[in-house]
Design a protein around this nucleic acid. Structure first.
Lengths: 231, 231
DNA sequence: TCCTTTCTCGTCCTACTGACGATAACCACT
DNA sequence: AGTGGTTATCGTCAGTAGGACGAGAAAGGA
């Protein structure tokens, strides 16, 4: 063990939210080389005595200013190509976070700016390092997980309407869902959502019941993405 | 970048196969401290100029003696608790490999022994480091992936019968599947398997058609695990 | 009051699955 | 050759879930 190649280990975050019917990602504009002035995923070095999930949660709190335990945070994957960082051998553990709509972030110390950007417009802008690939994997993970888990609720505030939940699905999947079948499916799946006992006020149309997320961890049967030819 | 905590990075492998109607895992018995004489996942340090998938593939080849491109290899997750290795700060990237039945492995240089062990008997024996947790995650990943991918074919030789594929499912899931419904489901899902045009000889009962794995990457609808109450 | 909007329940029809019967095609016996 | 055991493969039937869509309920605004 005395001899081993010295690596740097970082965590990078794919932080997604749904705001104004658009899927948005939290990005920082780099203030220092390499990739200066380019957009990048928020992240940073892992402390020598810090566990990986702790490092991810710490970065998430630092970047969003939110005291953590909201939304969803999970490990996405690890990226360690020898050439991915010109400064040396850096292995990054990527995490995926799903959050409800939050106020705009404040730029950190080493970032020139930080903001929510619609993912539809990020596709063009090339991100720093291999963050494009990480973002692609994060989006795919998020889209897939909406199918068989109740994680869409992580995009919502504690109490939400079925229509709001449907908007999340439609935004993340870029597709339309039938409101009536969606309502039947969500309310008919045990443990997906539970009625909060209150209704909305002041919106257009008939008031809607409010729900909270239920105890289920998996959806059976899964929510099906419409018209996806995948074979 | 001049200052960063020095980490060691390793890859560890959860290598699964199905032999004699049992789900087996490739383990090595450690020949050196720490955890000397304990079973552990095969693995090793990542070379300084080596990509992570390359390191995993290299370790897999070294441990099994098979020139790689068979079966399935994917990243499972990364484990980096500060206390997980008494020698220092070691972050390990775990990979999951699914292989057809192979001959017994030969012990490597730093391992006292290497062998296939039924996972049912590994549950008791405590593995070195945090390898128990990695194994648990690997098993869960494998069981889940059989549901919505054609990866069960990775456990089979290039040509296999439907009954062999069913045995894989039954072994990994520890459950019984109806042979007739399974046959209908597998042959009816486009791209899952393709007929090889040949039949088995010499076995008991009616000869069975041989199939190869098809081009599908996902199963739609998924294969359902029987009687799993999960909500 | 009437119209628009949105929520919510209900009704077909089709696809898929679980349970299980029936037949086909081999081997090992006698 | 015939008989029985074993396994592969096809078919049938009923129950469930989902897509398409009708219709009423409950609000706000003209």
């Amino acid at each position: 063990m005395a001899e081993f190649p010295p690596f740097a280990v970082t965590v990078d975050l794919v932080v997604l939210t749904v705001r104004a019917d658009e899927l948005c990602i939290l990005l920082v504009r780099r203030g220092v080389p390499p990739y200066q002035d380019r957009w990048a995923l928020p992240g940073g070095f892992v402390g020598f005595d810090e566990d990986l999930p702790d490092a991810a949660a710490r970065e998430l709190t630092e970047e969003t200013g939110v005291p953590e335990p909201i939304g969803h945070l999970e490990q996405l994957g690890t990226y360690g190509s020898p050439k991915r960082d010109p400064r040396g051998r850096v292995v990054t553990v990527a995490y995926l976070a799903l959050l409800p709509d939050l106020p705009p972030p404040v730029a950190g110390t080493d970032a020139a700016a930080a903001d929510w950007l619609p993912v539809s417009r990020v596709a063009d802008a090339q991100l720093a390092f291999d963050h494009d690939a990480i973002l692609t994997d994060g989006l795919e993970r998020a889209r897939a997980k909406l199918e068989y888990t109740p994680l869409a609720t992580a995009f919502c505030p504690p109490e939400f309407t079925i229509a709001r939940l449907r908007t999340v699905y439609e935004t993340v999947w870029s597709s339309r869902l039938d409101p009536r079948n969606f309502h039947r499916k969500v309310t008919g799946t045990p443990g997906f959502v539970e009625p909060a006992g209150r209704v909305t006020e002041g919106d257009r149309g008939r008031p809607a019941q409010l729900f909270r997320r239920g105890p289920a961890e998996l959806l059976h049967p899964p929510m099906l993405r419409p018209s996806v030819a995948r074979s």
